[in-house]
Design a protein around this nucleic acid. Structure first.
Length: 574
RNA sequence: CGGGGCGUAGCGUAGUGGCUAGCGCGCCUGCUUUGGGAGCAGGAGACCGGGAGUUCGAAUCUCCCCGCCCCGACCA
């Protein structure tokens, strides 16, 4: 029983000045966490109990799925990460350090390498597969910008699992087992979430999904089709636009459009000089970029921006992507800033990418590659030729669902889990092979699966809090029942202790506010701030032999006779 | 890394060159109080983020550094 008279806890009446998002504010105010440095937090008793409750649920579900728990050090030699090139890939995001002999170490940002090597050193036969291992470990990433309290820290607790299979079909099975285990886990954690298609990215691999907890303070943007259930990270959203017949379009025509370097100025001049009815959507925007040192052009409708994240995610292998700068224009005098058109892209040495919205046969107004001139009736496939179609335009609310064409909604969310078919990249690099039934050496295929455990504390707080404070689901609250004793006599305090003992005998976790010097008001406020699901008040109603029960989530209040109280309270919980 | 904001007691804050740096919460002592962050009285707690400078005099002005928060770039 957690007794508040001795609990190491100090709640704050005021919001901390350096906390903005609700989870951060409330976790600090309620005495769960304290900041040590940017993105680095200490856990006080209430916070640590909550964190361990989440760990417990995660562990139980992983074990139930037949995955086996191991544990690696957070402090590791750099060697393995060198072999997989992740030292370079992580760059400055990696905490690096030296031992006294000058040996190169790091604080692990994730553990693919170590798991791969561990399996390699123990197993060598296909008969040992499939295998899934996991750990719950502290990870370190030197984020450029830690933010939102515990949502994005530089030190965080993560559950990471890895599956090992001989075949692609086996990987699918392992992947699906993890997916099911994750659904069970997040359901038990009382979270609202969507399973969303994600981009596999440079790591390769065929399948990747994110578990996103919708929340306005989240960092991820995703699209959701409320009709068919399609959900995707904006980067992974597919636009489906069909080719049209452009054969009837009048020939391309070059017109003078003085001082129209932007879409807005162009549309204005078009409407004044060339008849009305033009909008930004009729124009074609030619965005010039440098991709790993190579000049490329991306075509999007003029009323949309290029989403750089989305573009990069859909250009596999490209590591460095940036917009053209003045210096780049200076080096390429044929490319006229503000008047670039795709008509001579290949001639100019540009690889021409187009968003699918710029479909074959569509006709556009675009730059004429001459200052102060634009071209009308520029038809894709007749007047310019796209090298490759790539989803790159910003995604908007109302865009058609790729599965059923219903307008999609866009929402923000916190990523709480990610399941990912890694394929053979790590096994190949670190030579994890097994012998198959024919005695042939085969590279193992892997999956990697993560749950942000400490982040889940914040995500749940974000989703469940109200204006009074935190408001935990019962599986993870510091205690299921929060008993408050009021008054100055011994009776309510003794009664509260006895009630707590009875509840614990029924398997319930109990927190008891037995502070003699705190007023009832303080105890009520603290109980609401701390956010345990059931608040029991032992006080005034005691003269009638009753206690008062309040359900934190609903605000519902009821009374129970003392002798029936344990059963009644317990009955309110799962 | 670019842009913006901020750094005064455990927390929230006032104080734009001039007395001993003020207030609220919290903390300690005593009395009173005990169903919605109680009252009175007394008290402890701050080299005003650090350094250098300007000045008779700096929390306050200047420069440098450090730290924190927000937006963006980046990133799970």
């Amino acid at each position: 029983m957690l007794k508040m008279s001795t609990l190491f806890l100090r709640t704050l009446r005021d919001d901390p000045a350096d906390a903005e998002v609700a989870s951060h504010r409330l976790l600090v105010r309620a005495g769960y966490i304290r900041r040590i440095a940017a993105g680095i937090y200490s856990w006080l008793p209430l916070g640590y109990i909550t964190l361990r409750n989440i760990e417990r649920v995660v562990r139980e579900e992983m074990d139930a799925a037949g995955f086996q728990e191991v544990h690696f050090p957070a402090l590791l030699p750099q060697d393995a990460y060198k072999e997989t090139n992740r030292l370079a890939e992580y760059g400055p995001n990696l905490f690096r350090l030296q031992d006294r002999k000058g040996g190169a170490y790091l604080l692990a940002p994730t553990h693919e390498e170590m798991f791969t090597l561990m399996v390699k050193s123990e197993y060598s036969s296909y008969k040992d597969l499939p295998l899934s291992l996991y750990q719950i470990q502290t990870k370190y990433r030197d984020e450029a910008r830690p933010r939102s309290g515990i949502i994005r820290g530089r030190e965080f607790v993560m559950k990471d699992s890895y599956s090992f299979d001989l075949t692609d079909e086996g990987l699918d099975v392992s992947y699906n087992k993890h997916r099911i285990a994750y659904v069970k886990t997040f359901d038990r954690l009382g979270m609202r979430y969507n399973i969303v298609k994600a981009v596999s990215g440079a790591m390769g691999g065929s399948r990747s999904e994110e578990f996103l907890a919708p929340c306005p303070t989240g960092e991820d943007t995703y699209v959701l089709c409320e009709s068919c259930g399609y959900a995707a990270n904006v980067e992974a959203m597919k636009s489906t636009v069909n080719a049209v017949d452009g054969s009837g379009v009048a020939p391309m025509q070059i017109v003078d459009t003085p001082n129209t370097p932007t879409i807005d100025t162009l549309v204005e001049v078009l409407n004044v000089n060339f008849g009305g009815g033009f909008t930004g959507a009729d124009t074609l925007k030619n965005v010039l970029l440098v991709a790993d040192g190579k000049n490329i052009a991306v075509l999007v409708p003029g009323d949309r921006e290029v989403d750089l994240k989305r573009l990069q995610a859909n250009l596999p292998g490209v590591e460095d992507l940036r917009l053209f700068e003045d210096a780049d224009f200076a080096k390429n005098p044929l490319l006229v800033k503000g008047y670039v058109g795709p008509q001579r892209a290949q001639e100019f040495g540009l690889t021409l990418y187009a968003d699918p919205r710029v479909a074959p046969g569509t006709s556009w107004v675009t730059g004429a590659n001459q200052r102060n001139q634009h071209a009308l009736n520029v038809v894709n496939g007749r007047d310019f030729f796209v090298d490759e179609y790539v989803d790159s335009a910003e995604v908007r609310r109302g865009d058609p669902c790729p599965e059923c064409a219903t307008p999609v909604v866009i929402d923000r969310a916190i990523e709480i889990g990610h399941i990912f078919q890694l394929g053979r990249k790590y096994a190949q690099a670190l030579e994890l092979t097994v012998l198959d039934g024919d005695g042939q050496s085969r590279v193992v295929t892997m999956g990697s699966y993560g749950i942000g455990v400490s982040r889940a504390v914040a995500a749940i707080a974000e989703q469940t809090h109200d204006e009074l404070g935190l408001n935990w689901p019962e599986e993870i609250a510091p205690a299921q029942v929060h008993i408050i004793a009021t008054g100055k006599e011994d009776l309510p305090f003794d009664t509260a202790v006895a009630l707590g003992v009875s509840l614990e005998a029924l398997g319930r976790t109990v927190m008891l506010d037995d502070r003699r010097d705190a007023s009832a008001g303080v105890k009520f406020k603290d109980a609401e701030l701390i956010g345990n699901p059931i608040i029991v008040v032992v006080g005034k109603a005691l003269v009638e032999g009753k206690i008062e029960i309040r359900v934190r989530k609903t605000g519902e209040r009821l009374e129970a006779l003392l002798e029936q109280a344990p059963a009644v309270i317990s009955g309110l919980l799962k």
